[in-house]
């Protein structure tokens, strides 16, 4: 390996047989223990959780659809109606987080309340509120993005890559 020549220091000695046996035994013990722990551990209730995620996620989506229909009937074009719906849903997610209700929904819904855009709002308000005591710059403003930040970073990276690919290959 090229990298290993740059590093001065003791050359890596091959393990003696006894050391190899010890290492093997340690791995074996850890695996055996992991199996014991797994046999005791309660499992997540996959089916119940999935059903709860389905119906609560569905209700949030249906509510958003109702809001979209209302905006559309008020004369907004489909695009603006969708944008206005996003604003309302983000507001609702933020408000319910502030009122201390969204985390209670999340206990039951799991992904059902994480994945909708209301969950994105929750992930912004929860740390912002919690870290208010650490000040308005290092607390609220910087902590706001602990979860939302990665979402935006990867979202932007992917969207720019898609744009570059579309530009150069079409």
């Amino acid at each position: 390996m090229a990298g290993s020549t740059k590093q001065p220091g003791p050359p890596k000695k091959p393990l003696t047989l006894a050391e190899q046996v010890m290492q093997q035994k340690q791995t074996y013990d850890q695996q055996a223990y992991q199996r014991l722990a797994d046999s005791v551990k309660p499992r997540p209730r996959v089916i119940v959780n999935a059903l709860n995620a389905f119906w609560i996620g569905g209700v949030i989506a249906a509510l958003a659809q109702v809001i979209t229909l209302i905006f559309a009937s008020a004369g907004l074009n489909p695009r603006d109606a969708a944008a206005a719906t996003v604003i309302v849903m983000v507001f609702l997610g933020a408000l319910l987080t502030g009122l201390g209700i969204y985390d209670e929904i999340g206990k039951v819904a799991g992904a059902g309340s994480i994945i909708p855009i209301t969950g994105f709002a929750n992930s912004i308000v929860a740390p912002a509120m919690e870290y208010k005591r650490e000040g308005f710059v290092f607390g609220v403003a910087s902590r706001m993005f602990t979860i939302a930040g990665p979402v935006l970073v990867y979202g932007f990276i992917v969207s720019v890559l898609i744009g570059l690919i579309a530009y150069f290959f079409s």
Partner: peptide, 17 residues
């Protein structure tokens, strides 16, 4: 919670363990 895991108002599910 806020030191080791998530802010308390974050809507997450805790695993049964």
């Amino acid at each position: 919670e806020r030191q080791y895991r998530f802010p308390t108002e974050q809507g997450i599910q805790r695993p049964p363990t």
